[in-house]
Design a protein around this nucleic acid. Structure first.
Lengths: 112, 112
DNA sequence: CGTATAGTTGGACCAATGTCAAACAATTGG
DNA sequence: CCAATTGTTTGACATTGGTCCAACTATACG
């Protein structure tokens, strides 16, 4: 099991995190990871409407920004959100972004 | 007093807000507005190290993303954060970003 | 009306980015 | 060893974006 290179928690830059999450494809990947905990790349990028090489490009952006970690197991790579690292560095930020990106929880009202 | 065109609250897009705040110059402007409440453009963009036309470009980005409102009074334009609108649309998001961008509050520890 | 102030717009330029396609690399399984 | 699977890399391309400069607009002030 090998962990791909990623920025240390204290080196994660706010602007890069925001930038990483400002792309609809990457935001969707983050949402999926939030729901699933951990996903291999093929599943995380399935039905995103982009070529697999484009998806791979986005995986790298997310990892280099410090949003996800990627570990390789055999021939699969698994991504997961760096929830704790991001919470330590930017408290509340990831949760707020995910809540804003998620479909509404059952029973919620917004347009009121 | 004239309000410059801006997206309705329900039309504010998460990815555009994140994108708007992902530029260091714009993030700094947002931080200044958070601290000052309202600023005219010249002051908001002072000492940012960019040409006034570049600053003007950033004002527009922030306004079109729904992050700030701009009103014209006489020959001055005043910007302020759309705090309530953003809070209604994306609860906690702006506060989390500003907290992450701000210098540490006195007495806070992070690297512990 | 003329001038100063405040900010925008348009052009030019370069760097970064999102995308696809094709080739490549690494791993697993017969 | 060979083939299939999984994902990356490279190249090409178009778009966007940040920046400066110069010209412009709009408003206020004499």
């Amino acid at each position: 099991m090998r962990l791909l290179p990623q920025p240390a928690t204290e080196d994660i830059e706010l602007t890069e995190v925001l930038r990483a999450l400002s792309d609809p494809v990457r935001l969707e990947i983050a949402v999926r990871l939030a729901a699933a905990g951990e996903l291999n790349c093929t599943i995380a990028g399935d039905d995103l409407g982009v070529h697999k090489s484009t998806a791979s490009h986005h995986y790298r952006m997310l990892r280099e920004a410090g949003v996800v970690r990627t570990k390789q197991e055999g021939r699969l790579k698994f991504m997961s959100l760096r929830r704790d690292d991001l919470e330590a560095r930017f408290p509340g930020l990831l949760d707020a972004v995910l809540a804003a990106a998620l479909p509404l929880p059952a029973g919620a009202h917004v347009g009121l």
